[in-house]
Amino acid sequence: MNEVISNADFLDIINIIKLQYGYDFTGYAQASIKRRLLRFMGHMQLNSVFELKYRLVNDQDLFSRLIQYVTVNVTEMFRDPGFYKSLREQVLPKLAAYPNIKIWHAGCSTGEEVFSMAILLQEAGLLGRTKIYATDLNPANLERASAGILPLDNMKDFTQNYIQSGGLADFSNYYTARYDNVLIKKELRQHIAFFQHNLVTDKVFNEFQLICCRNVFIYFNRELQNSVLQLFFDSLSSRGYLAMGIKETMRFADLQGKFEVVHAHNKIYRRKE
């Protein structure tokens, strides 16, 4: 994989996708997306950028597969246990003051972090009056997430994460294992609505007390980060919380003055007024 995609070719590809399919990758961080495009070409045995462009124009199926490849669908339950601990200790007690709680998971991938959130809410006695809106760009992710089925292999790691996050229950109570998979309990899933939302092109659709958007900003350039941050600001109720990935930062964002820091290391912020 020693070839590179020139800037001109990259812009061509992005334009074809935008005009033909309505997905806008213009503001994506290039180092990563170029690499993923090359990987996709390798996988589909497309030998040149020209061939990729030609097929994109003429073949809708190829585009559906490209979306699977270009979006990053890696996730874990209770990823960064310390973050979930902060949620338990610092955020959920504040959310408890609301009669109805609305949470948005933006970029939820296959749902692992959403299920983790549902577990936290359940343990805090808040799940019954919470609605979680979980959105992603990739329809295949949403299909998997809605099914609530995860591979059994990962549960050992997830259990470790859960315990480190301060979980005291028996983690296996939250799912039913069968053969190589587990099914997340329905009582957790029934408070979650999974649907498609594109952070680049779609707008505000509700008002939330907490928005979780972890490890999504890293794939955006600064300009796009700024505009999505504006979208989040507009979607938060006054004093609402925003949680990002632990290596994502608001330091370089235009809107940083409109948020206060709740937990610097775990990247939990709060909308000022």
Binding site: A31, R35, V72, V74, Y219, G245
Partner: peptide, 14 residues
Amino acid sequence: MVEADRTFMLDYSE
């Protein structure tokens, strides 16, 4: 990773 404008980019892919 490093981007063309010499800033870091983190990536949480496979």
